[in-house]
Amino acid sequence: MAESILVTIFCCLPFGIVGIINASKVSSLYAQGNYDEAQRASADAKKWTIIGLCVGFVGIITYLVVYGFAAFTLLNVQ
């Protein structure tokens, strides 16, 4: 759950929210005795958290490259 929240805050909001939703299902499914469903919800939460983390990192790197190039270009204009 904590990882999904951190991904939501710092990386990618949509995928982090899906991770939070799936992570919140785990404990209630486990308490009901639906161990297979709880395991599946946990795996889904992990999957969406990792996807959100990867998309967030790609977005941050793209942002830095584009704006770094723009700043470099503006500094070299004479």
Results as ranks from 00 to 15, higher is better:
2 A>T: 12
2 A>M: 14
3 E>T: 11
4 S>Y: 14
4 S>D: 15
5 I>N: 12
5 I>K: 12
6 L>H: 10
7 V>W: 13
8 T>A: 15
10 F>Y: 12
10 F>T: 10
10 F>E: 13
10 F>S: 06
12 C>D: 15
12 C>Y: 15
12 C>E: 15
13 L>M: 14
13 L>F: 15
13 L>T: 09
14 P>C: 08
14 P>G: 05
15 F>Y: 13
15 F>V: 00
15 F>I: 00
16 G>K: 10
17 I>V: 15
17 I>D: 14
18 V>H: 03
19 G>F: 04
19 G>D: 08
20 I>V: 11
21 I>M: 03
21 I>Q: 04
21 I>K: 02
21 I>V: 04
22 N>Y: 11
22 N>E: 13
25 K>I: 02
26 V>K: 01
26 V>D: 13
27 S>G: 02
28 S>L: 10
28 S>T: 10
28 S>K: 13
28 S>N: 14
28 S>W: 08
29 L>S: 01
29 L>I: 01
30 Y>F: 10
30 Y>V: 00
31 A>R: 07
31 A>K: 11
32 Q>S: 10
34 N>V: 00
36 D>Y: 07
36 D>H: 07
36 D>A: 13
38 A>L: 06
39 Q>H: 07
41 A>C: 12
42 S>C: 10
42 S>D: 12
42 S>M: 09
43 A>F: 04
43 A>T: 02
43 A>I: 02
44 D>A: 09
46 K>M: 09
46 K>N: 08
48 W>I: 00
49 T>C: 09
49 T>I: 05
50 I>S: 02
51 I>S: 02
52 G>E: 14
54 C>S: 07
55 V>D: 09
56 G>W: 13
56 G>R: 07
57 F>K: 11
58 V>E: 12
59 G>P: 03
61 I>K: 02
63 Y>C: 04
63 Y>F: 11
64 L>R: 07
64 L>G: 03
65 V>S: 01
65 V>Q: 04
66 V>I: 10
67 Y>A: 04
68 G>S: 01
69 F>N: 08
69 F>G: 05
69 F>P: 00
71 A>C: 09
71 A>S: 15
72 F>N: 05
74 L>E: 14
76 N>V: 00
76 N>M: 06
76 N>A: 03
77 V>S: 01
78 Q>H: 01
78 Q>T: 01
78 Q>C: 00
78 Q>Y: 03
